[in-house]
């Protein structure tokens, strides 16, 4: 089924939308989640949360590229699960507990600002990547957005693992310089 039809189903509040989304993008989303979480159960949970988030966001959202839209949701949910999981691991340490408590105090009320900062940072990274060669851009996105293993990213970008490693190293340094020039605190 085409993306437009699936989005229409979401807008019609038809539950078949989730079924078709799962049929078409289930594996794709699971792969993104698994690259972050490295756990099947957590990945499934993340993908299910993605469907719920998509159900809640459409309408009013009407994404032009459904796969990218769903991928971003899955990615963010998976990162959140990852952070929660790591926080749970630190429960034994009193320092970690106090760190979390103080962190909650500091971040209270600053969520909007953080989101704005993240958006600005994202736009700056967009700008930087658009200036890079296609090969470098694909490698960077594959490695840091899709979180594919270096070997796999190098393969589909048509370069050796060693070369991919050095390209990524140079690109990170260039990004750092770029962001400093743009006025970000690094």
């Amino acid at each position: 089924m085409r993306d437009e039809k699936i989005i229409d189903l979401y807008w019609e509040r038809n539950e078949q939308a989730i079924k078709h989304t799962d049929e078409k993008y289930g594996k794709y989303l699971t792969k993104i989640a698994y690259n972050i979480l490295a756990d099947k159960e957590d990945s499934k949970e993340s993908v299910n949360d993605t469907y719920l988030a998509a159900w809640n966001s459409m309408p009013p959202q009407r994404p032009t590229a459904l796969s990218a839209y769903l991928g971003k949701i899955t990615r963010q949910i998976s990162i959140d699960i990852f952070r929660k999981r790591n926080r749970a691991k630190r429960k034994g340490s009193e320092f970690a507990v106090s760190y979390d408590e103080l962190g909650d105090v500091l971040t209270t009320g600053n969520m909007t600002e953080e989101q704005v900062q993240a958006k600005l940072l994202g736009e700056a990274i967009n700008k930087f990547l658009l200036e890079q060669p296609k090969e470098v851009r694909n490698l960077f996105i594959g490695r840091y957005y899709f979180l594919d293993p270096l070997k796999e990213a190098a393969r589909y970008c048509g370069m050796s693992e060693g070369k991919a490693k050095s390209v990524l190293f140079r690109t990170r340094n260039m990004l750092k310089e770029f962001l400093q020039k743009e006025g970000f605190d690094i």
């Binding site: 993240a118 994202g122 700056a124 990274i125 996105i141 957005y145």
Partner: peptide, 8 residues
């Protein structure tokens, strides 16, 4: 987090 704002 910022990478989630990349262009589609």
């Amino acid at each position: 987090d910022a990478l989630n704002y990349l262009d589609d």
